[in-house]
Nucleic acid binder design. Structure first.
Length: 583
RNA sequence: GCGCCCCUAGCUCAACUGGCAGAGCAACGGACUCUUAAUCCGUGGGCUCCGGGUUCGAUUCCCGGGGGGCGUACCA
């Protein structure tokens, strides 16, 4: 999901990958503001007439400041007469929480504009070398240009050390009053932690051996108005005052990504993992497709859907709970290998392993069966782990787990029989219920299907740590799977478990239209709360003829949890669902 | 949905059995031109999540609400 979604947005014009080259080709160049502190020679962006974009002067709103957007802020964003609530710097301030630190930054912002005459938010493109590349190149007499965010600042009289953080690393900066001239030195003293700057200068080693840019020129790229949490790491590698408020991290992921390198690595790693999954499928002849998210009939899983209303058609529709039924239509249509990687939505509770919108990879392969799916799963997990930088052995919650294929296979019926020491399949539902009562599980359930499933979880899956395929599920748990030849009560289905996480669900797909109709109609007529309407168009497709096929759904978030040793699904999702905070 | 726990300065955390809301970092002012959790001197910063109650007095106890975490339920 993230990989593609981002790349799909790349051709956005002014933020294209190499704006400078594009501009150079067009021969558009502009004199930089010589004599204005903090202005490099710069090229104008396409379509911009005024190099110094000033926001329009909007009159400040009247009335009491009773709005507060910070969820933790109980007090009012009171206006104080500090003398800088004038001119363009005032735009938008009435919406902000103003505390002493924000106030100090606003004052510096105004001073930059009014005293030094620079634009704190210049709309410019420029070439900057990535910080890791500068670090790799080592000391250099020739000046380099770098851009990033200032963290940590160590003042030393008329010299200042600071750390500049870019996407993949950081480097120390050294500002000296003597090197910079009065105006740029003034700018240095107006910089705050969190400001985004561009610097250039030669690279040298300090006495203590730290690679450092001796800044000879600098420009502000964007002024930060909010104080960042200040996280420090000492010489022993111990971290001090790390941001640890999970609510803050989830609600303000941008800040979390800036200050918590582990979260940054985990979330970026997830994207790489997703790219690896796509790469595997693309290489193996699978076609990536997109099927409807808004569906008139939901199906393909047993789950509570989100319900919405399509006004133009005056119809109720549902956010998809699975992509299965549409992807199978494509097998009928003659696409032999298809996959979709995207979000499914289930209107159910949130816990450590469940998210109401989660990323699922579903793939379908004609002429294959669930055995082929097992092999695909093994290969994809290995490649994903490789891409995530995990190697073939990982540690999850303290357990060492080997991802080296082949994964173990255990039969559903035999493993339950063995673990429980009973033939639970011959038990009446009432007896199963009594057993569940004794084990204190499956509260409220009375039907045989749910009870057997819960007992299986209790006896078998909770004990599975190493990657394992549980194979050959009872038919009554698997309405869309094909029966095992010569064993009609059993289906060719597996679920893949690792470290107690259910990662995949796959079957040899049911392609007998009459049998499928019977199962779906029985289900729709049952008391199952989650059974939707019978999807006639899906049955129409099966009646047209679907090749035998293997199909599989993989929980992408959970695979990421496994590879990055995450304690909660929220830790591998960039923006987890949270309640909105009401005043 | 239910149960338990948490919410104090921008961040990380104190505040005994109910007795003047504190520290470090950050901020602000000052000193310091190779520091790196820089250092040194000084200053400001709080509706203690919100609303009620008990009390002479509530960050602390009680009730209600909000948000979060964990567990549980729903999730073939």
């Amino acid at each position: 999901m993230p990989g593609r979604a981002v790349s799909a947005q790349e051709p956005r014009g002014r933020h294209a990958d190499t704006p400078c080259q594009a501009l150079r080709a067009r021969g558009e160049q502009e004199e930089g503001g010589e004599g204005r502190a903090g202005e490099f020679q710069e090229r104008r962006l396409v379509g911009e007439s005024d190099p110094v974009l000033r926001p329009p002067a909007v009159p400040a709103r009247q009335g009491p400041q009773d709005r507060c957007r910070d969820f933790r802020c109980g007090r009012r964003a009171g206006r104080r007469d500090t003398g800088f609530h004038r001119g363009v710097s005032e735009v938008g301030e009435e919406m902000m929480e103003i505390n002493d630190q924000v106030q100090a930054r606003l004052a510096k912002l105004a001073e930059m504009r009014e005293r030094i005459g620079i634009d704190p938010y210049p709309a410019r493109a420029f070439d900057a070398v990535s910080i890791p590349a500068i670090v790799a190149a080592g000391p250099s007499e020739a000046p380099v240009t770098a851009a990033g965010r200032l963290r940590s600042r160590r003042e030393h009289g008329k010299a200042v050390f600071a750390d500049l953080w870019g996407q993949d690393g950081s480097i120390q900066l050294y500002f000296r009053a003597d090197d910079l001239g009065a105006e740029r030195w003034t700018l240095v003293n107006l910089l705050d932690l969190g400001d985004i700057v561009r610097v250039s200068g030669p690279v040298f080693l300090t006495r203590s051996g730290e690679l450092t840019i001796a800044v000879k020129d600098l420009a502000l790229v964007a002024k930060s108005l909010r104080p960042l949490p200040v996280v420090k790491t000492d010489s022993m590698g111990k971290t001090w005052d790390a941001l640890s408020d999970t609510e803050f991290m989830y609600r303000h992921r941008c800040v979390d990504l800036i200050v918590n390198p582990a979260d940054r690595r985990r979330l970026a790693g997830r994207s790489k993992m997703v790219t690896a999954l796509r790469s595997y499928l693309d290489r193996n002849g699978f076609l990536e497709v997109e099927t409807p998210v808004l569906q008139p009939i939901y199906g393909g899983a047993s789950a509570e859907p989100f319900v919405t209303r399509y006004r133009a058609q005056d119809e109720t529709c549902y956010l998809r709970i699975a992509t299965e039924l549409y992807l199978k239509r494509l097998l009928v249509g003659g696409f032999d290998r298809v996959y979709e990687l995207g979000k499914d939505f289930r209107n159910e509770g949130i816990d450590r392993t469940h998210s109401p919108e989660f990323t699922q990879l579903e793939l379908y392969e004609a002429w294959a069966d669930y055995g082929v799916m097992m092999r695909r799963f093994e290969e994809m997990v290995c490649e994903a782990a490789e891409a995530a930088g995990c190697g073939s052995t990982i540690v999850f919650h303290g357990m060492e787990i080997s991802l080296r294929p082949p994964f173990e296979r255990v039969g559903f019926v035999e493993s339950l029989r063995k673990a429980s020491n009973e033939d639970l399949f011959s038990w009446a539902p009432a007896d199963l219920r009594k057993l569940c009562d004794r084990l204190e599980i499956a509260e409220g359930a009375t039907d045989r299907e749910t009870l057997i499933d819960k007992l299986f979880d209790h006896y078998v899956t909770e004990g599975i740590h190493q990657p394992t395929f549980v194979v050959d599920y009872p038919q009554f748990l698997s309405p869309l799977a094909k029966q095992k030849p010569g064993n009609p009560g059993i289906t060719e289905r597996f679920e893949a478990f690792v470290a107690g996480l259910e990662l995949a669900n796959a079957f040899s797909e049911q392609n007998d239209p009459l049998f499928q109709r019977k199962v779906l109609e029985e289900q729709a007529g049952s008391s199952d709360l989650h059974a939707g309407e019978v999807d006639e168009d899906f049955l129409f497709a099966l009646e047209t003829g679907m090749p035998s096929a293997g199909g599989m759904g993989i929980g992408v978030d959970r695979l990421a949890m496994l590879l990055f040793d995450a304690g909660s699904i929220r830790d591998v999702v960039l923006f987890p669902q949270l309640r909105r905070v009401r005043q």
